[in-house]
Structures are given as C-alpha cells and as structure tokens.
Amino acid sequence: MIETESGVFLEKTKKDEILTPETKIDKSVKPVLAMSNEKIVIETKTLDFYYNADAHALKNINIHIPDKKVTAFIGPSGCGKSTLLRCFNRMNDLISDAFHTGEILINGVDIYKEGTRLEDLRKQVGMVFQKSNPFPMSIWENVAFGPKVNGINDKDELNEIVESALKQGDLWREVKDRMQNSALDLSGGQQQRLCIARALANKPEIILMDEPASALDPISTGKIEETIEELKKNYTIVIVTHNMQQAARISDYTAFMMLGELIEVDLTKKIFTNPTQKLTEDYITGRFG
C-alpha cells in the first residue's frame, strides 16, 4: 500500500540527503527511449520517485510517450508501473511524505514547474482507475462533474458534452434513457466505461488507465478494449496492465518495468517477439511473474 505513516520528523535528514543538487544533475542516462519521428507528449528525465526516504519506488526513469498512441506499462506487481502512471497527473502528490527528483515534461512543459496548476494538469491528463469509482450521483451528474468543476455551467453545453463523452465511451446507447438514474445502478463494466466517459468529458489530451479492466469479467473487458481501440484515434493513452495479452492486443508501444526501473520500451510487436533485454524475454515468456 502507498499509505505510509512514518514519523513526521523522522527521516528528514535522509530526504535532504537524497535531494542534494548532485543527485539531480548527474545520472548516466540509460537511454531506454522510444521511437523516432513521432510527436512526443510525455517525457521523463532521470525521474526518481520516493514514497518516503526509505521507499525508493522509481529509479532513473527516462521515457518518451508518443502522441495518439496506446502505450502499455507491464511488469510484475510492485514494479512501479502504477506509480509512474500516477506521476503523470501528479496523483502522487496526495501522499504526504512522497517526493521525487528529475523531471516530467508534458508537451515539453515541466509539470512540477512552479505555478503549475494541478487542476489544469489533471484536466489535461485524465485518469481511469483500476476499480470503477462512479460518484453516488446520477449518470448525467457523473459525466458532467469534470466540466462543472472546470467552470462550465451552461446546461445545453453540458448536455452536449455529456452526450459526446458517453458516445465516445460507448455507453450512450445503454444509458441515454436513464441519465438521471444513480450511477451505482450500472453494472461493473458499465460503471468503468462511465468512468472513462467521465474522464473524456473533460476533453483531455492524455488518458491514463490504471488496470482499467482488472476487476471486470471477460465480456466487459472486451468492451473496454474496444473503447480504447476507438479512443486512440483522438487521445494519447497510457495504460497499466498486468495482463500481457491485453497489452499485446491493444497497445502500440509497451514499456517493461521491474523493481522501479524501466527495463525496455519498444514497439509492442518487438517487445513480445524480440525483446532486447534478457529480463524482458524472461517475463514475457512467463519465467517469472
């Protein structure tokens, strides 16, 4: 779990040690980079992430994530793939003792830059969680939540946004007649697609998906995958999955992580057929898991 309850004053010195200027500057860049000739949306530079001074969760991550493609993060549990994903919209800020070194650039802008507004970042970078988390409100209210908190109050405009988001999330047909029903009445798969639609309503550029189908049955999973397939035309999608088949099915690029390190990033086809790294091959072929 990411909940840490270490003492308040306890590890301060250690954290300070980690945050010395030297650690920031030099890190022999291990070029686990992506793809030439593609527009890069997300870029990390020597990113290190700590839950607290004793829990070094991400080590020297350097990755480029291309525009309008699906990038999948795979790796054994606890390898840091979810952590990395949550770095992209700074969800990790919620953890009280966590800190990082290095940089994350989105469209070339450092998201940790002073003056960055979290709300804008998160509007730009939408997120779908592992377990569907519809709010205990009506379906319509759920989808309209994002636009509303971002300042859109015009009913017609909201209706339009909700409809288009639900259509993109492939839920419109199922729910258009019961928009005012509680979102909690939907089935598990529908709830998750609602969450996707909810993220889309904000008109994000990037959508982060943290094992979006892990709690669903195969049919619902298939539906979600279809939706993703559809979405990548318009959005950059980063998906964390523990299901290698899923990664192989839906992603264009795959990044393999282990023990907080990024081992290899490449075209999905290449990773699954001819990985460069021995570790990747071992993981793909199921020698460990």
Binding site: F135, F145, A199
Partner: peptide, 27 residues
C-alpha cells in the same frame, strides 16, 4: 466516502475544496 471517489474527483481536475464540497460533504 470511498477513497476512489475522492481520487476520481481530483483526477478530473477539481480543486481540493471542490472535491470536498461535491464528493465528501454530500456523502
């Protein structure tokens, strides 16, 4: 109030106060 709901609200770009007012307080 489930943690997931609170995170969901934040991930949609709401401020902490918006999250509290719209998700935490009603529930």
């Amino acid at each position: 109030v489930p943690r997931a709901n609170k995170e969901g609200a934040l991930a949609l770009g709401s401020t902490k106060w918006q999250m509290i007012r719209k998700i935490v307080l009603p529930n």
